[in-house]
Design a binder for these strands. Structure first.
Lengths: 235, 235
DNA sequence: AAAGCAGCTTTTGTCGATAAAAATTCTGTT
DNA sequence: AACAGAATTTTTATCGACAAAAGCTGCTTT
């Protein structure tokens, strides 16, 4: 989704889609909120027509719902929904990883190594500002997971996983803005998980890599909602 | 996607999305065609603003591309693309089927049986008019596959598979409008495949059912492009 | 006090006109 | 004849005004 990459050539509608998307992912617009067009026009300076068009593009990404004659609203989050994201990611990302391991060349390997390095670095040196931490982490974390599956050869799998990743970002952000972000990121086993995953991929151990991925995905939900009773109630 | 189900309460934009979607799926708008707004306004009687909004909603469904300042065009089809659809469907639909078999109750079983019955019936008694055959087949075929996975419990898997199914429909339609549709539908092994798939699901044989599904998905691409050199060139 | 209804306000959704960009045609030069 | 560049046409994208629907408010009735 390339957050914040607005070129001058982009149309207003495309800019609107990115802006509203960013507002939702970052939590500025909260779960269930109505998208008041007039307010958004004021806030963004974009006209109502391109705004509506941009928002319409987010519907199929699962960030927004449209109710006839009742406008748009931000798709609601819930623990069950987060589980659903991970359940859907699992078979898709497993297969993409398998294909990637099978087909990836040495350029792919180098890509995995370098993105893993950046991720580990970030987790060790994360900034204390939650907002900065969330967006920074998102960039390097998504970079690593995308690198892992980048050699799978299926445009659609990559596209779907991109959607699922962005949907998950709403929850990651929720987690990182509650309490000290470094507490979440520096949990030793979380860093270790990523290292293992990357190494198993490069050593072409598909089954073990997929197992590591499964564990990684299925424990994330706990991480978000575990000791965060507040987070749950603020949905 | 509920083709042709336009309620009076729907907004113009929603109607536009369905109309344009139907035009693409049916082949009325062909692969790579530009979507000329003015022409569409004339054809459909819908205003330009809601038309654009409706078309925007199809972007993430993979039916349409938007190029900045160069309008919309119909996503291109190709043999490689059809393979990609099936490759993405495979892991998702396999997992959904597995979950469904695990969790489905007797209502689910009855649903599978009844949709299978309708599908087999249709294949044996298919109309000779290609257009009628394509849309009719789509309805019962999608009904059966959706029934199979309906108990999986994951909204997202169902939504993604719905998208993939619709994307595939463009190719099924291509196939059925070349030559006698009944030739394609009455191939004995094609009917048998569906029967087996349904039966294995109901008898709760997840592994065998998934194998049958894999075979079903992977041979479809051949069916479309096999002896249809014309079809290929008309993309 | 609760329910129902009329009138008002707010908000959404749509239209027609216009600005902006791209595509096309035309023209003059080498 | 081929090409570059200007002028024209076409098409896309956007704005501002308006119609239509939904949501509110407060009054009346029981």
């Amino acid at each position: 989704m390339d957050l914040g990459a607005e070129r001058a050539s982009d149309t207003q509608a495309a800019i609107a889609a990115e802006r509203v998307s960013a507002m939702i992912l970052s939590g500025e617009l909260r779960s269930g909120d109505r998208l008041n067009i007039r307010d958004l026009v004021k806030q963004t300076g974009i006209g109502a027509t391109p705004l509506r068009e941009g928002i319409s593009r987010l519907i199929a990404r699962g960030l927004v719902n449209a109710l006839d004659h009742r406008g748009f609203r931000v798709t609601e989050t819930s623990p069950a929904d987060l589980e659903d994201i991970m359940r859907a990611r699992l078979p898709l990302e497993s297969e993409a990883l398998r294909l990637s391991i099978e087909r990836g060349d040495d350029v792919w390997e180098a890509h995995v190594v370098s993105t893993l390095h950046r991720l580990v670095n970030f987790m060790n040196w994360a900034p204390q500002d939650p907002r900065e931490a969330a967006f920074g982490f998102d960039a390097v974390h998504k970079g690593f997971h995308t690198a892992l599956i980048s050699a799978c050869g299926s445009q659609r799998m990559l596209a779907f996983l991109d959607v699922l990743y962005d949907q998950g970002f709403r929850y990651r952000h929720l987690m990182l803005t509650h309490g000290d972000p470094r507490r979440h990121l520096q949990g030793a086993q979380r860093i270790e998980e990523h290292k293992q995953l990357g190494e198993l991929a490069i050593r072409r151990k598909p089954k073990q890599a997929i197992d590591a991925l499964r564990h990684h995905l299925l424990t994330f939900s706990d991480d978000v909602f575990k000791d965060n009773a507040e987070a749950r109630s603020q949905d």
